[in-house]
Amino acid sequence: MGISFARIAYLSLFIVVMSLTYGCASVQSRGYVSAPAWAANYTEDYVQEFWVLTESGQRTGLEGIQVSEFSRGGTSGGHMGYASVPGVGQTIKVVWRVGGHNDAEATWKTFSKDVVVKGETSNDPETGNFLIIRFFPQHEVEAEFVWEWAKPYAKSSPRVDQLFYGHRVMRQLGE
C-alpha cells in the first residue's frame, strides 16, 4: 500500500494548517466558515493573485498568489490565506489578476465574478474545511467548500481536485 510523495506533502500541509487553526470554530455564526483557500487553475493564464470578497464587497482576508498555469501544475506556489468567509449557498466575489511571470504589474488584467459557494462543510473537530477556488477558461470561476479527515491515512475527498496530488486531470466548470 504505497503512498505518493504528493499525498504525503498534501496531508502534511493539511495537518499543519489544521493544527495552526485548531480552536477556530469550523462553522461560525451568520453562516460563515473559517477555512483556508486552495486554488486550482484549469487555464493557461498565470494568476498573479486572487482574493475573496463578501457579496457587499468587504474583504474577507482570504487570498492567494502565484497560481500556475494548468500545463505547469495548476496550483498555487504562494501563500494561501485563512479566514472566515460566507458559507455554502451564499454569494462571494472572487477577484483575480492575470499576467505573465515576468510581466510588469501595470500590464496585469483584473477580473471579478460573483459566485454562489457550493459544497459542504463539517463541524467534526477531526475534520478540516477548505475552500477551493477554481479558475476556468473564458474567465469563469467557481468556489466549493470541501472537508476532509485530518488523519494521515484517511481517504481523501473525491471532490478534491487531482491537481493537488500532482496529477494534471482536467476538470470542467460545474463538475
Rank of each mutant, 00 (worst) to 15 (best):
F70M: 11
R97C: 10
W96V: 02
A37S: 11
G57A: 12
P158L: 06
Q28P: 01
S56N: 14
G77V: 12
R59P: 08
R59E: 15
T54M: 04
E49M: 12
L20A: 11
I133D: 02
G78W: 04
F145M: 04
V115Q: 10
S68V: 00
H79W: 07
S26C: 10
R168F: 01
L13H: 14
V141R: 07
V16R: 13
I65N: 06
E142Y: 04
S71P: 05
R59G: 08
A9S: 14
V117G: 03
T91A: 09
S122G: 10
G89I: 04
S156Y: 06
V94Y: 02
I15M: 15
V117N: 02
F5N: 09
V98T: 14
L13C: 09
S26I: 07
G73P: 07
V47Y: 07
G87Y: 09
G61Q: 07
G119Q: 08
C24D: 13
A40E: 04
G61T: 09
G174W: 05
E120H: 11
A9Y: 10
G74D: 04
M80A: 10
G2C: 03
S76N: 12
G2H: 12
Y153G: 00
A150L: 15
V47G: 04
E175Q: 13
E44S: 08
S26R: 15
I15S: 13
F145R: 08
E144G: 09
G74L: 09
A106F: 12
S157K: 03
A40Q: 03
F50C: 03
S26D: 11
L11H: 03
E120R: 11
A104S: 14
V85A: 01
A25G: 15
L53R: 13
D161F: 02
S26T: 11
L13G: 15
M1P: 06
G87N: 03
R134N: 03
Y46I: 01
F70H: 04
R30P: 00
T43K: 05
S156T: 10
